[in-house]
Structure formats: structure tokens, C-alpha cells
Amino acid sequence: MSEAAGTTLLEVRGLKKHFGGVKAVNGCDLEIHQGELVGLIGPNGAGKSTVVELLSGLVKPDAGTVVFDGREIQGLAPHEIFASGLARCFQLAKEWPQLTVLENLLIAIPPDGKDTIWRAFGSPRKARAAEAEARDRCLAIAEKYRLFPLRNDYAFTLSGGQKRLLEFARIALARPKLALLDEPMAGVNPVLQVQIEQGIRNLLDGGSTVLLIEHNLGFVERICDRVIVMVEGRVAASGSLAELRENPIVQDAYLGGVGAA
């Protein structure tokens, strides 16, 4: 998909976040269109993960605007941003350790006001039906990502790779308008990498837009419509990976640097 096609889903202008003297994100501008799968690459410390933190509201930006789905969301609380349809997965898996895998998945389904105290008592039949439907969805996703046999295990007992799968499965259940995936493949074995790749395509088929942070450039080239390169807290270039390989700034900051190392 070319850059002109599709309506703009996310527009970031002049986003800034400084941690003391470190300019983690320093005037970042980017646009993501409806239905795109955009790769976000850049050397370590370029500010990619900080952008995800800022977009999801876990870290408040120092400056800049973020317009998501026609609405300014910078400065909103994380749960409000999630409710507006933007979900993210974490680079280091953040499971709920003393909840079972199934409970971890159940939490990922948007609450939509269903977690009221009264629901524990009022209209139990309706509540039970909603719970059963949610559980069926979770079990199907668990089966897909090979988590079904582990559904009754506490999440802290999972291996690193299994936690990554749980992380991705939660995003698949949340069905967001925009999914921010921070290295979903890291530490996952090749069979399950294919599963996650398929999962990313499923997200797109389901109408989601995806921003993917990934260091595996071969994978990025194969799957992404467009790639954004971040260097030193700013977007250095955007386009297809083939175009970017010719870009001297990108070569110098990222591709060439890695090649020389």
C-alpha cells in the first residue's frame, strides 16, 4: 500500500520526551494509514520503544500532538487510550504472574464496563453467557498459540517464549484499531514465529492497523507495506526497505553501521 492510500489513522507531530539529558524522542513526526502494516526500525536507543510508551499513554510526552482516529490522545490515561482502540504489546513480557494463562487472556478482552461489582450478583444468566463467550474466544486463541494445555498454569511458570506468545495472544483478543507490536518475535522459536506472522496477518484481515518494531529486516521486508526508520529520536526516512537501503542517512545510521560492526 502506498503512503497516499487510505485515511490517516494516526498522526504524530513533534513528539518529544527527554529523560534528564537524554533526548529519547526528539521531535518525532509520523503518519500511519488505515489498514497499513508499518515497520519501525532503527538502531538500539533510537527511541522506538519510547514512541510506543508515549503512544500508549504509559509515559506522558513533554511536547507534541498525537491524533488517533480523529481525536487528540496525548496526555490521556492508558486505559482511555486502550478504550479508543489502541493496544500494545510489551517488549519485555508483562504477564499477570499469579493469574492463570486463561485469566491473563480473559483480561485482554476489552472490559466495556462489564467488570462492575453489580455484575457479580445482578443478571447472572447474562453475565454467565458473556463470560462463557469470552472464555470460548480465549480458549480458541490459546489453542492457536499452543497455550491451551497451559491454560490453568500460573503465567509466571511460562517460559520466556511462551510469555511472548501470551503477549501476542492478548493483542489478538483485544482486536484494536491500531496494534503496536514491540518485537513480538523476540525469543520465539521458528514454528511459533510463523504462527505470530500469521497472527499479524489475521489482525490486518480483521481490520486492524499494525505498527511493528522489529530488528529482523528480512521479516520486515517480507511482511511490511512500509518501513519507518528512526535515528536519535526522530524519523530519518520512510518508504520501502529497498528504497531505504539507498538512503545515505539510513545506511550511515543503521544498515551500514550494523554491516560494519
Binding site: S56, G57, L58, A77, P78, H79, F82, A83, A87, R88, F90, K94, E95, W96, P97, Q98, L99, E103, L106, I107, A108, P110, P111, K114, D115, T116, I117, R119, A120, A127, E131, R170, A174
Partner: peptide, 20 residues
Amino acid sequence: PFGRSLRAVRENETAAAAFG
């Protein structure tokens, strides 16, 4: 579901906030 959400907040509040 309310109790489950509450336990999720106890277990990891960052992730709980990120999931609404």
C-alpha cells in the same frame, strides 16, 4: 470479572492499564 480485573491490577498495574 471485577475481581479478576482487581487481581490483574495487583499483579501488574502497567499491563492492566495498557489493557483498559
